[in-house]
Design a protein around this nucleic acid. Structure first.
Length: 827
RNA sequence: GCCGAGGUGGCGGAAUGGUAGACGCGGCGGACUUAAAAUCCGUUGCCCUUUAAAGGCGUGUGGGUUCGAGUCCCUCCCUCGGUACCA
């Protein structure tokens, strides 16, 4: 794919120009960002890449438009910080190490080397002095520092939690390593294991994370996804009594369920609890114990697989005991069922088949009663073919009959609280963030376990806790750090006796939750970030990146900033004020790019042949940035042609011949076109509408081309048009713009210039094309002066022979007049 | 299933409720050339028409609102993305 057929030859040497300016900019520190500036600040960030070792076209699609936007802000007069770094910890490094025997550190650092070079070929305004590499101890030391702060605040805690386990590889798997319930590497069916693991209490912030007030401009789609992810629902917790099969109360104990539909309490016909529920054992009667055990075993194994592949198979197992509905005094059977999740609500569900789809399916399968208690407009039929989940009037609910179910919800909740049977409560879907990874290539969690003092935090003065080089990271069934004796054996920070280090490492989302602070001064030694710089630069004004990070990364980052704020470390609550999500670049076949499809485009090949600017411009031109779109080897030729034309227009000698006449009208028209162009390009770049901005510039260059042929304007006017054009071109095609700026004899650098400003007066028209419609259909167009009266336009329109032909003596019922736009004659 | 985005020429895509198809690709015709490529000029939604003029039809489907709908409302179909037993 390195040689494309029918490639349009360029009039300039792109590789020469690219490297010429890239090295000049670097030498001059042109893009070094000054922290002290009179200009207003603009912090524009793009999500940093994982150093996979190869910069693919998707990276170009993410980075070149964001660079263009940052450059535009720069030319608008902002002091712009547009940093880049590497998300350098993570699984692929460890996999490469396991497969190829290279140390993860070596592999990662080599990849960063090559990717840094590839990134430089973009010609972006990155300030490389601020590069962040999070596998560097200089960075992860502060991960540990922040972790200790979280621990101090009670936001970090250790608890048993299940992990996905591959019995064959003897290793913990990440969710994405599980394919159809099997290990992606060896295809073995996975199981689960309970391990003591570290969590961050993001749930403390669940309510506040739902508040998006502090954000200026985020896509509604992302907010919805975050809302759903947090999953707030308000309901009632209510206790049920417990009976054995002889109707005797088992104990004073009760079982609590959470429901959002307390209005259906009279329709409860069974209770379903999670197989993991703590009361399962005590509720299981002798005659059911074998079956219950079997069901629990089975759900442990199958649940994950079933969940992924099948839809809504509801199974359960009777435990033998009964629950007592305190409102009806009815005795209802208790089941364990894997559709009830142990970690949501109370892990127990009151089954109301008539008004819940899942309960309905379950009741059908086990022949349980269906009892309708909410009536949809008078329908009291008890033979239901499906659950009725809507609202209505209460029936079969004793004293609550006849009122709306909304009202009943309120009354019942109050009643329950009065009787002390339960309480109103709010439930969240979001769970605490599990940050422990049983992996080598990550930040060591700075904790120590002492047999005398228990879990102890490492002293801040002992940071960083370095990742040892000698750990065996090949899978063994334990955290790899356990194999480094020197690492594990340490001294208790409290009693100075022998102790062991925590051997889990941190989730890489920990790194990316605060890297925006570190960019400000990645070398800062006193703290994770320099407060003075945080005050002047944060929060990030514009963040761009893929929508795949809608919930995890973006939610974690918001949580971090709120937690840091509550510790008094920052004084704002949102890290990213504006967010824009780019789409996905597709292959030429309109399919997602993948090696197996063979439709991958290697940007290096194209850049070598056509230059960075051609690639940048094409990627921005194919369509709206947030929609993504297909690459095209043929389509990029159009860009090459355009760049050639730009080259010609801006380098050709413009001189008036002896017989050339300067035409005032042509000059005025050119000025108007220029100013219209400036307005359109300015407004489009502002809103990330690169495709239409470029289209407008193309139109303008076509117009300039015509002017070049007629030479009917003064050379001074011509030169100022070329100058303005180049300035608009600069953020889009920075190398070529700089070269042409130099050829035209302007002072280096174009990238230190301001974006042109348009003059609204020059844009206003005095003659417009009036559309004349008959019955809403365009029949003629007439030139009229601006601001013409309706009556005048009407008589002009009626004079048109084309219009006459359509009216043809019929009576005019009505005339719609839109000033300076159209007139519609209705007959 | 639910949530979100979208469906416009041969293709990528433009269009504050007011000229549908900007800009570009591709195609066609011409100029230049021994020739080809490149370049330049012209042309290009479909139908009818020898051509032109003049019509007619056209933004996934079917309805509606409006003087006027790609755009607003309702029904359905399809594509893509996200998410999933949340009680």
């Amino acid at each position: 794919m390195s040689i494309r057929q029918n490639q349009v030859p360029l009039k300039f040497e792109p590789s020469r120009i690219d490297s010429k300016w890239q090295s000049k900019w670097a030498e001059d520190n042109l893009y070094k960002v000054n922290n002290d500036s009179d200009k207003p600040k603009w912090y524009e960030m793009t999500m940093y890449p994982y150093p996979s070792g190869d910069l693919h076209i998707g990276h170009w699609y993410a980075f070149s438009p964001s660079d263009c936007h940052a450059r535009f802000r720069r030319m608008q007069g902002y002091n712009v910080l547009h940093p880049i770094g590497f998300d350098a910890f993570g699984l692929p490094a460890e996999n490469a190490a396991i497969n190829r025997g290279i140390h993860p550190k070596t592999w990662t650092m080599q990849n960063i080397e090559t990717m840094r070079e590839q990134l430089q070929s973009l010609g972006a305004i990155y300030d490389w002095n601020r590069e962040v590499i999070c596998c560097d101890p200089e960075y992860y030391e502060w991960n540990q520092w922040i972790f200790l702060k979280f621990y101090e605040q009670g936001l970090a805690y250790k608890q048993k939690a299940p992990v996905v386990w591959c019995p064959s590889c003897q290793t913990v798997l990440a969710n994405e390593q599980v394919v159809n319930g099997c290990c992606e590497r060896c295809d073995t069916v996975i199981t689960r294991r309970d391990l003591e693991q570290w969590f961050l209490k993001i749930t403390d912030y669940a309510e506040e994370l739902l508040d998006f007030e502090g954000l200026i401009e985020w896509p509604e789609k992302i907010l919805t996804m975050q809302r759903n992810w947090i999953g707030k629902s308000e309901g009632v917790e209510i206790q049920f009594g417990l009976l054995n099969s002889e109707n005797a109360l088992i104990s004073e104990q009760t079982i609590t369920t959470f429901t959002t539909r307390i209005d259906t309490i009279f329709g409860v016909t069974f209770m379903a609890i999670a197989p993991e529920h703590p009361l399962v054992e005590s509720l299981t009667t002798k005659e059911n114990s074998i079956d219950v055990k079997k069901y629990i075993e089975q759900s442990k194994k199958i649940s994950e697989i079933e969940r992924m592949s099948t839809d809504k198979v509801k199974t359960g197992q009777k435990v033998g005991s009964f629950a007592l509905n305190k409102f009806t005094n009815e005795k209802i059977p208790i089941y364990i069922a894997d559709y009830v999740l142990p970690n949501y609500g109370t892990g127990a569900v009151m089954g109301v088949p008539a008004h819940d789809e899942r309960d309905f399916v379950f009741a059908n399968k086990y022949s349980l009663d269906v009892k309708r208690v909410v009536s949809e407009t008078g329908n009291e039929d008890q033979n239901m073919s499906e659950a009725y989940v809507g609202n209505g009037i209460m029936i079969n609910s004793k004293t609550y009959d006849g009122i709306s179910n909304f009202e009943a919800k309120e009354l019942l909740a109050k009643d329950i609280e009065k009787k002390k049977w339960g309480k109103k409560t709010t439930s969240f879907r979001i769970r605490d963030w599990l940050v422990s990874r049983q992996r080598y290539w990550g930040t060591p969690i700075p904790m120590v376990e002492c047999s005398k003092c228990g879990i102890q935090p490492v002293a801040i003065s002992d940071l960083p806790i370095l990742l040892p080089d000698d750990a065996e990271f090949k899978p063994s069934g334990e955290s790899p750090l356990k194999t480094s004796i020197d690492f594990v054996n340490t001294v208790c920070p409290k009693c100075f006796g022998p102790a062991q280090r925590e051997t889990d490492t941190m989730d890489t989302f920990f790194d990316s939750s605060w890297y925006m602070y570190r960019y400000l001064n990645p070398k800062y030694k006193e703290a994770p970030f320099d407060n003075k710089l945080v005050k002047s630069w944060m929060p990030v004004d514009q963040y761009t990146g893929g929508a795949e990070h809608a919930v995890m990364h973006l939610l974690y980052a918001r949580f971090f900033t709120k937690a840091l704020r509550d510790m008094g470390l920052v004084d704002f609550g949102e890290p990213f004020l504006r967010l824009f999500n780019q789409g996905i670049i597709l292959g030429q076949d309109h399919e997602k790019m993948s090696k197996s499809r063979g439709n991958v485009i290697n940007p290096d090949d194209v850049v070598t042949g056509m230059g960075a600017d051609a690639v940048r411009v094409f990627l921005m031109f194919i369509g709206p940035w947030d929609q993504g779109g297909p690459w095209s080897n043929v389509g990029i030729n159009g860009i090459a042609r355009w760049l050639n034309r730009v080259w010609t227009i801006t380098t050709e000698k413009y001189e008036l011949g002896s017989e050339t006449m300067i035409n005032q009208q042509t000059t005025d028209e050119l000025a108007k076109t220029l100013h219209k162009t400036i307005k359109k390009v300015y407004e489009d770049l502002d809103k990330f509408k690169f495709n239409t901005a470029i289209a407008q510039l193309m139109e303008f260059s076509n117009y300039l081309n015509k002017t070049l042929n007629t030479k009917a304007v003064d050379p001074l006017v011509w030169n100022s048009c070329v100058r303005s054009f180049l300035l608009m071109f600069a953020p889009i095609a920075p190398h070529l713009a700089e070269e042409l700026w130099e050829i035209n004899g302007y002072k280096y650098s174009i990238h230190s210039e301001s974006f042109p400003i348009w003059n609204e007066e020059l844009i206003s028209e005095n003659v417009i094309t009036m559309i004349v419609q008959v019955n809403g259909k365009v029949r003629d167009k007439i030139e009229t002066a601006i601001g013409m009266e309706e009556s005048a336009v009407k008589s002009l329109a009626l004079m048109s022979s084309k219009i006459q032909a359509h009216i043809d003596g019929k009576t005019i019922n009505k005339v719609i007049y839109v000033p300076d736009r159209l007139i519609n004659i209705v007959i």
